[in-house]
Design a protein around this nucleic acid. Sequence first.
DNA 1: CCTACCGATCGGTAGG
DNA 2: CCTACCGATCGGTAGG
Lengths: 202, 202
Amino acid sequence: MPEKKTPDRKDQIAQVASEHFHEKGYMAVSMRDLAKEVGIEAASFYNHYESKGSILKEICFRMADEFFSGLNRALSEHHLPAAQLQAIIREHVGVVLKNFSASAVFFREWRHLSEPWLSQFLELRRRYEEQVRQVLSQGMNQGLFRQMDQNVVVYTLFSLLNGLHEWKEVQQRFSPQEVTDHIAGIVLNGIAVGDQAKHHKS
Amino acid sequence: MPEKKTPDRKDQIAQVASEHFHEKGYMAVSMRDLAKEVGIEAASFYNHYESKGSILKEICFRMADEFFSGLNRALSEHHLPAAQLQAIIREHVGVVLKNFSASAVFFREWRHLSEPWLSQFLELRRRYEEQVRQVLSQGMNQGLFRQMDQNVVVYTLFSLLNGLHEWKEVQQRFSPQEVTDHIAGIVLNGIAVGDQAKHHKS
DNA sequence: CCTACCGATCGGTAGG
DNA sequence: CCTACCGATCGGTAGG
């Protein structure tokens, strides 16, 4: 009596789905497409996931967990705003580069989540952004960052972080450290007073 | 004998389609969805467009035209690399803010173009990027920009430019001039030698 | 621009 | 995990 429902199968499906959702978009990938790639029949998916949407849900929320873990690690291990900000960037970059397809799905395909997951997802993103804003506020209040429109700074930071997955060669060409140093350099030197943040190396 | 095929109808369809493709994604919008919004039957679309894909094609290539017009204007009206770069940014920002939905479709939905349009589209993007690279190269060769990895600079610039459409409040909160100044400030002060680019205002 | 309709494919279920 | 199948919906066409 062979084991058919191997414990890896669910992870394998999530991995294959991440890659296909990344390349073609969630709506353009059918259960039959995934089935062919995984090597089972389409109907067999429903032994592992209750619906197509639940695969997307798992990918998105697993990535959200990863991003929050990184954020919490960054905040607990550093206390100066500039160091915290750089650690946030390093953790974020690490998560993206380690889960390239899944993070692209996270950033690009979340709008296809169904309720109540969609609302929960947006709430998580709001909280992530809020925590980053607090670091910026502290840096400004302590006179470590220049006083500037916080929305503009947040936009700049998240554009650079969330756009990483559009840059295909980044994984091969640069180490996480190089990417981190670059983004941190742009953001910190753009908002820090004087040179004090310029020599922060992680 | 009333005019049924008004000359505005095709533009109206493109406008409605841009908004729906932006909000839900190309694959998640059916011809019947669009029909309902436009106020005609789904079958009637085929008097204006030969297929669903041709609506997407028109949106994407019309935006490509807009971006190239802006690029050419920037390059012909300025000659110093820093001024050219800032003009490129200003033109690009202007196009995005003036065509918010359509530009989001341009950046996000182009992968659903069918051949040969997909290949043509990618070639256009490659040429746009190539022209920007040349400005960067000239700036570096003339000693006006710091010598740094060009891929990294291009990535930074395009992340900020191409991510604009993700920032919903940008249209209401900031003028094109403010957005331009911000992005140009980040990019130019990040790569320019000394302060010479710092006081370039458009 | 509409009515009527087509074949294909979709996500998902029943039953084993 | 598979075979067999379902209702719904898709993009698109014929004919007027």
